[in-house]
């Protein structure tokens, strides 16, 4: 083989490959062709093996030609490869296109009950002030539910709690969380800051604003210098935390046999903002809890010396707070457990 022949062969191969590459339609065919031409045993190699038969002087010149052919062929493969891959991707996109506006795969979402959540929120707020949660039994003793709270048998204040009694002597279903005060005093020593959430029971016909079972949160704080002013300050903080900053509050006398002085605590009506509406009986205020300084008799039953220790207690209905938080107008919704209602509390 002479120089001219070899050069011609190389150029013929180049031209053939260029036209073959241009004719490929798939990436896989192009890859096979590339192996066939440029591979170890490829056709370009076969042609170049002829270089060995050339005179030494001619070899560099053929080498230069061969290199140019290789570069040219590689470029053609490269360019066609890019073209074909783009085309194939495009075809894949066309094939895989979906209607992205259809709804996604449904995943079941759970929800937490507003009463438990609200009780938890109350506990969370007071925990910032050092209050810790305690719990007591729901089947209570008459002694702790009433007598130790300064409500002896036949006390007229018993009318405030219509009671459900059970078939165990001296036991009843607790009418409030207040017996927890006695239990906490027995179980700990001052300083005491306790929060007592739980289920309570009353002999009460059920309607939009009365329930026979409901939830309360009781608070108790006792040490040597806790005052009515501390109670007011703390309740103000609570009202801001629960209902929003800047809410006005009203601190006024109330009555409970187990506190003296006793307090009723109102917040500005969350519906009308204080201007008066049916929700607040046109008063502009909503009573959210009862409170007071723990009665000395109660401190004594709790095993504390009322001359040394003093403090306050408060109790609130969780449903009442939840009503205001979530604009609920009917207590029955909480215990009816209609899932269409509950699933809103995500």
């Amino acid at each position: 083989m002479d120089l001219a022949g070899l050069t011609r062969d190389l150029e013929a191969l180049r031209d053939e490959v260029v036209s073959a590459v241009a004719g490929t339609q798939e990436v896989s065919a192009l890859a096979a062709l590339e192996v066939d031409v440029l591979g170890k045993k490829g056709r370009l190699g076969v042609v170049l093996r002829g270089i060995g038969g050339l005179p030494t002087d001619d070899r560099p010149r053929v080498g230069a030609v061969a290199n140019a052919v290789r570069v040219a062929v590689e470029e053609v493969f490269q360019a066609r490869g890019v073209e074909l891959r783009a085309k194939e991707l495009e075809a894949r996109f066309r094939a895989e296109t979906v209607d992205v506006t259809t709804p996604g795969r449904p995943i079941r979402r759970g929800s937490l009950h507003p009463i438990v959540e609200t009780a938890g929120r109350i506990a969370e707020i007071f925990s910032q002030f050092g209050f810790v949660v305690h719990e007591g039994p729901e089947v209570e003793d008459d002694l702790t539910n009433f007598q130790m709270l300064n409500i002896p048998p036949d006390h007229p204040a018993r009318d405030l709690w219509d009671t459900l009694y059970v078939d165990i002597d001296g036991k009843l279903l607790r009418t409030h969380t207040s017996p927890g005060q006695i239990r906490v005093m027995h179980a700990s020593t001052p300083p005491i800051r306790a929060l007592l959430p739980g289920r309570c029971f009353r002999y009460e016909a059920i309607d939009a604003s009365h329930a026979s079972e409901f939830f309360q949160v009781e608070g108790l704080m006792i040490d040597e210098g806790t005052t009515l002013g501390d109670l007011r300050g703390l309740l103000d903080q609570f009202a801001q935390a629960m209902f929003g900053q800047g809410k006005r509050t009203r601190f006024r006398p109330g009555y409970y046999p187990f506190t003296e002085p006793s307090v009723a605590f109102d917040v500005e009506c969350v519906v009308c903002g204080g201007s008066g509406c049916p929700a607040c009986s046109r008063s502009g205020w909503m009573t959210i809890l009862g409170a007071g300084m723990v009665h000395p008799v109660v401190l004594q039953y709790g095993g504390l010396d009322p001359e040394r220790y003093q403090g306050f207690a408060f109790g609130m209905g969780v449903e009442r707070i939840a009503n205001l938080r979530h604009s609920v107008g009917d207590l029955r919704l909480y215990m009816e457990n209609d899932l269409r209602f509950l699933e809103q509390f995500r």
Binding site: G120, A123, S127, F129, G130, V132, V133, H134, E135, S188, P191, I192, R193, P197, M221, D223, E224, G225, T226, T227, L228, G229, D230, R232, G233, L234, D236, Q237, R250, F251, R252, P253, V263
Partner: peptide, 22 residues
């Protein structure tokens, strides 16, 4: 008037830590 009772925040000692039963 209860309204004239000063609103304060407790300045008395805080009780020891206790685990949260909830």
């Amino acid at each position: 008037g209860y309204e004239l009772v000063p609103a304060m925040l407790p300045r008395t000692p805080t009780p020891a830590w206790r685990p949260d039963p909830l």
